[in-house]
């Protein structure tokens, strides 16, 4: 609640309408781009304008802060803004996780002619049985879906073909008794390394934050730099994994619902890591310029919250897409 009553209400600004124009161009341009025969020109113009606007806008906010216009109350508005923005991101991922669970638990059983929740009664409903017998005969409930319903019915002429290999924990291929002796199969398993990298980066960004709060500029810069590099490394490994999937696993966006959910979930996560890495990199440059003090560094704090959020999403992915994938 306000107590001092000197909340900074900015003067008129041309930035918002230019930003809206950029968004309009990007939306229109993206649509005309994806339609057959279209190109990316308008989208790129919008993107360029958006880049300029974002640079100007954040520069303006940083300037205002340096002029002392940003009261603690206004800072709290920024804090609330960032927290609720992250909440909206959580809900965006929730849509895709929800889609995954729905397809995996319910649809997969129904197409396969089984009861989805066999806790009380394992007899499939008449609808599920008919589904399988009439529409998708031969399809068996499975996850990951290596053979799509389309393949079960149409064989090689199917439009949607399942992947040759999936990304799940390699140990599942062996009986439990052999797991210990097969532990080495985890070594080339990229998701494990990506998990290690992201968890470490969450830790290093925290160390950087602590350093900043204690006024240790060298600690802050060193650990923030390490975090950015870890983010970049994660992205490199993700690219390697995608290459592997397309080149050797036969796993693509088009390979049925498994490929769909795999690439959409990890892809959106990767996009968010890219954004988070960019945010942190900008904070690193700002740190080099000496724009932060031990008690005033919300730009960095917001970026680090975002980073932790991206990390948590990864843990969810690691569990449901990779380990129990």
């Amino acid at each position: 609640m306000s107590s001092e009553g000197n909340y900074y209400v900015p003067e008129q600004s041309k930035l918002p309408i230019f930003c809206a124009t950029a968004m309009g161009l990007m939306a229109f341009g993206a649509a005309s781009w994806v339609i057959e025969g279209g190109d990316a020109k308008i989208f790129l113009v919008g993107l360029a304008l958006m880049t300029v606007v974002m640079y100007k806008w954040w520069s303006l906010v940083i300037d205002e802060n340096m002029q002392g216009l940003v009261s603690p109350q206004l800072k709290h508005s920024y804090v609330l803004g960032m927290l609720w923005f992250i909440f909206s991101e959580v809900m965006f991922f929730a849509a895709f996780f929800g889609a995954l669970f729905y397809v995996r638990v319910l649809v997969n059983a129904w197409i396969g002619g089984e009861a989805a929740v066999a806790l009380f009664d394992s007899t499939p409903t008449a609808a599920a049985a008919a589904n399988n017998e009439i529409l998708w005969p031969g399809y068996e409930r499975q996850w990951p879906v290596m053979q799509t319903p389309d393949q079960a019915v149409n064989g090689d002429s199917a439009m949607f073909k399942g992947p040759d290999r999936n990304m799940s924990l390699p140990l599942w291929e062996y009986p439990v008794s052999q797991w210990l002796s097969k532990l080495y199969t985890l070594l080339p398993w990229l998701p494990l390394w990506n998990t290690v990298i992201l968890l470490t980066s969450s830790f290093t960004v925290h160390v950087a934050h602590t350093g900043l709060k204690e006024g240790k500029r060298d600690v802050f810069l060193r650990y923030l730099g390490i975090t950015v590099m870890l983010g970049f490394l994660f992205l490199c490994l993700q690219v390697a994994e995608y290459y592997e999937a397309y080149a050797h696993y036969g796993l693509t966006l088009q390979s049925g619902i498994y490929g769909t959910t795999f690439f959409m979930l990890t892809g959106f996560h990767g996009a968010h890591v890219t954004l988070g890495t960019a945010m942190l990199l900008i904070q690193f440059i700002r740190g080099l310029k000496g724009q932060f003090s031990s008690d005033d560094h919300f730009g960095f704090e917001a970026a680090s919250w975002y980073w932790h959020f991206v990390d948590v999403v990864w843990l969810g992915l690691f569990l449901v897409v990779y380990i129990f994938g």
Partner: peptide, 22 residues
Amino acid sequence: INFGTSFFNAAGGGDPVLFQHV
């Protein structure tokens, strides 16, 4: 529509009803 995923297509293992839920 554009990239060949099968969220809403049962042939690939998805479900049009998924759209209604989301």
